[in-house]
């Protein structure tokens, strides 16, 4: 019963967080110089005051700010994310067309990063001070220190251009007409480079975190006690060290699952991956308010969800934290 009401309360809170985000972003974005009417008038190659006003009226930009906000919020509450004027399409349609691609990319990258991060981190901690540890540490450092887009371009150069093993852009071979399993394999082939590129950085983060955290826990008194009691080292690692050491890693992972959407901006741009990261960046530069707000809202909702899950997992892993 306690867990259920906990979840319900977190959900309500989550909704309020989202609402606050919408309002904050709404105001923030409008502080930026330029508006969509000016951009679109500019793109038309000809613009005058009349044309801009015509567009501003069409977009409702001539109304007072609080009224625009009110209209927008009213829409959001009825799950209407508005119309993207620049793309001439409903925001929700645009986002949900692109969301699966981003979820596939970030999901794969996340699983890859978390699995290998924790494994490598645990391995390094278990072999602390030995060459395995040094190797993993150096590897993590290098992955961590290399700019994402640079890795992306280098991997395209190597695997796509020189070796010709993997496709360098897009999500599937256009016009190839693959169906069924063939299509799935085709998407997977396209997925490898972007997912690895995006995942490497986060893998490094998790590796370092897991290692540091495990070393910390290994020194805790209860571990020493367990050791003194003569429990098998493997059992100690599994039962005590890993379980406790994963706490900060989980905290971080929950946060980063959402942040990856931001990191996906770069990956999606370089690999021409048709996801919402790219959609967001274009919307930003073109001041496509509704679309930008919509992307923020949806990706924020995903993060709220992840945070909720994190909190839940947290309570399971560390019983000392009360659910109240």
């Amino acid at each position: 019963m306690g867990k259920l009401s906990f979840i319900a309360r977190r959900l309500v809170k989550g909704v309020f967080v989202l609402l606050a985000i919408v309002i904050l972003n709404f105001l923030l974005i409008r502080l930026a110089p330029g508006d969509p009417a000016q951009v679109m008038a500019g793109e038309a190659g000809a613009a005058d005051q009349e044309f801009i006003q015509q567009l501003q009226e069409k977009f409702g930009l001539n109304q007072p700010l609080h009224e625009q906000l009110f209209i927008y919020l009213k829409g959001v509450l009825t799950l209407d994310l508005g119309w993207s004027y620049r793309q001439d399409e409903a925001v929700a349609t645009l986002i949900f067309e692109r969301l699966p691609a981003t979820l596939l990319l970030t999901g794969t990258a996340f699983c890859f990063a978390l699995t290998f991060g924790v494994l490598l981190g645990a391995l390094a901690a278990a072999r602390v001070g030995r060459w395995t540890d040094s190797l993993i540490t150096v590897l993590a450092l290098v992955c961590y220190a290399t700019p994402l887009f640079w890795v992306a371009l280098m991997s395209i150069l190597l695997f796509s251009v020189y070796l010709g093993w993997l496709p360098g852009f897009g999500m599937f071979s256009v016009g190839a007409g693959y169906t069924g399993l063939e299509f799935v394999l085709d998407v997977l082939r396209h997925l490898i480079l972007p997912a690895l590129t995006l995942g490497l950085f986060y893998m490094a983060v998790y590796t370092r975190m897991t290692r540091a955290s495990m070393l910390e826990v290994m020194e805790m008194d209860y571990v020493k006690t367990a050791r003194a009691k003569g429990l098998a080292p493997g059992r100690i690692t599994r039962m005590h060290v890993l379980r406790n050491a994963l706490l900060p890693v989980i905290t971080l992972a929950g946060i980063q699952a959402g942040q990856m959407v931001g990191g996906a901006v770069l990956t999606e741009t370089v690999f021409a991956w048709p996801g919402i990261g790219r959609l967001m960046f274009d919307a930003l530069l073109q001041r496509d308010y509704n679309l930008l707000l919509g992307v923020f809202l949806v990706s924020s909702a995903v993060v709220v969800l992840f945070n909720l899950v994190t909190d839940l997992v947290y309570t399971f892993v560390d019983p000392r934290i009360e659910v109240s």
């Binding site: 606050a20 959407v261 931001g262 901006v265 990706s299």
Partner: peptide, 9 residues
């Protein structure tokens, strides 16, 4: 609030 918005964006 700050965390839920993708920070790079």
């Amino acid at each position: 609030l700050f965390q839920t918005v993708p920070n790079f964006a």
